[in-house]
Design a binder for these strands. Structure first.
Lengths: 110, 110
DNA sequence: GGTGTATATTGACGGATATCAAAGTATCTA
DNA sequence: TAGATACTTTGATATCCGTCAATATACACC
């Protein structure tokens, strides 16, 4: 029984042998998404917000970056499968995606 | 009692509040070190080698990269505190650094 | 429709990075 | 000391990334 995880809507098997080329190619973007200080703090803020999530408008100021920059980082986190967003009128709420860090955890505990 | 970890020979407190600027700046390079597919496989190979470690000369071929490129990646992993190296004559042996992934683990389990 | 607020996209710029070939350094052995 | 092997550093190149200002889009309300 292999452990597995979803990345970019494609299931990846970690398997038992040396880390496969395909698995590495799927894992790397998740680490890359967390490799920027601003994005780390961004993800942390979203995670601390819990199930309700946090409005994008409340993320710009504490990180001292322009609105487009925060928007860009949120997109990176979203495309890496780490956060989700839902629109509520004019606002957009971000929350941690279910099983967001499973792939990372499995690699670390390998 | 705070959790803590060592990065770049400097102790960093994760604390309880939102991820601090300093903590993010120390964590990001660890994720960055793991954000490249070649480096991920490289780290995996070193980890699989266990306590004995693995010779650098045995890492070039399986990853299909030039020898200088592998040397470069090993340097990145070493400077991120993920692997250690010791010389044995002409050869250099790499092994996983103790508590290599503690910082990452603590952030994930935050 | 028009106005205001929230968020996304575009375009540009400076800096980082993955890669290789070539050259340099270190160590062993003869 | 000379040659061979293992590894590192340098220099060059192409690509990627973080950032912002400017612009565009989406939505609510009047």
């Amino acid at each position: 029984m292999y452990h597995s995880f979803m990345t970019n809507a494609k299931q990846v098997q970690l398997g038992k042998g040396p880390l496969a080329d395909v698995a590495a190619a799927s894992l790397a973007p998740m680490f890359a998404a967390l490799s920027d200080p601003t994005r780390l703090r961004l993800f942390d803020l979203v995670r601390r917000a819990g199930n309700d999530g946090i409005c994008s408008c409340d993320l710009t100021e504490p990180l001292d970056r322009s609105q487009p920059t925060i928007s860009h980082h949120l997109k990176v986190l979203r495309e890496a499968g780490l956060v989700e967003s839902r629109r509520d009128g004019t606002w957009i709420w971000y929350s941690v995606a279910p099983h967001a860090l499973d792939a990372v955890t499995q690699f670390i505990q390998r």
